[in-house]
């Protein structure tokens, strides 16, 4: 564990807590893409298959349980909760996210580090996570008013993978044979997808104006 990875995990944890806070306290999911939340639930489900068979540390297990629990409960809130679901903007959240899954699965079957079920599922979760934010970014561009919590949620979600890139650079220089092109490239693609959001988020913060994304 290094400071970059800890910062990344904490940022990721905060992004999930900000979203749960928004949904649980103000009972609203306005501006949140259910498609992205569903993709993230699939990402965690396929990545943490070994949660009970491959014990790494208490920290690792607890964080996996938090990410699994939060992502599925957010999907449950947005689908089932009688108040929250009313604020879900299904007419605007129209990204065909299931179309994202097939290319990721095919790519995972072709490009992976080891052709085993678990490794292919893990690689699939990496590719899927890289594109999981797309429905959310599309929704942000459609809904004009981006409230602060939603903006913070997307910002933290993007920042966590940027910290992970620093973590991989650190591990590359401090550990022998630490070379993982698959993870590095998908992590880089994921972070680059946030680039324009980061730009507008920073502009809105610097000029102290409301966050607006160009249509």
């Amino acid at each position: 564990m290094n400071i970059f990875r800890l910062a990344g995990d904490m940022t990721h944890l905060f992004s999930v807590l900000v979203l749960l806070l928004k949904i649980h306290t103000i009972k609203s999911c306005a501006g949140i893409s259910l498609k992205t939340q569903e993709l993230y639930a699939i990402v965690f489900a396929t990545r943490y298959l070994d949660i009970f068979t491959n014990y790494i540390s208490l920290y690792n297990t607890i964080m996996k349980l938090i990410f699994l629990g939060s992502s599925f409960s957010i999907v449950w809130y947005m689908r089932r909760h009688k108040i929250v679901r009313r604020s879900y903007d299904k007419d605007q959240d129209t990204f065909r996210h299931y179309f994202l899954m097939l290319p990721c699965l095919i790519l995972a079957l072709i490009i992976n580090e080891k052709f085993t079920f678990r490794e292919v599922m893990w690689t699939f979760s990496l590719y899927l996570e890289a594109v999981a934010i797309l429905p959310q970014l599309v929704l942000l561009q459609r809904t004009r008013n981006i409230d602060n919590l939603t903006g913070q949620y997307v910002f933290l979600l993007g920042a966590y993978r940027a910290f992970y890139i620093l973590n991989w650079i650190y591990r590359y220089f401090t550990e022998e044979h630490f070379v993982h092109w698959i993870t590095w490239i998908s992590g880089l693609v994921q972070t680059l997808l946030y680039a324009d959001f980061f730009y507008y988020y920073f502009q809105s913060w610097k000029n102290n104006v409301k966050l607006e994304l160009p249509a």
């Binding site: 990875r5 995990d9 990721h12 070994d50 491959n54 790494i56 540390s57 690792n60 964080m63 996996k64 990410f67 580090e113 080891k114 490794e119 893990w122 992970y164 973590n167 591990r171 550990e175 044979h177 630490f178 070379v179 993982h180 993870t183």
Partner: peptide, 10 residues
């Protein structure tokens, strides 16, 4: 094995 050392990450 090389690939295991990524599995300690989330």
């Amino acid at each position: 094995e090389a690939y295991t050392d990524l599995k300690d990450e989330l």
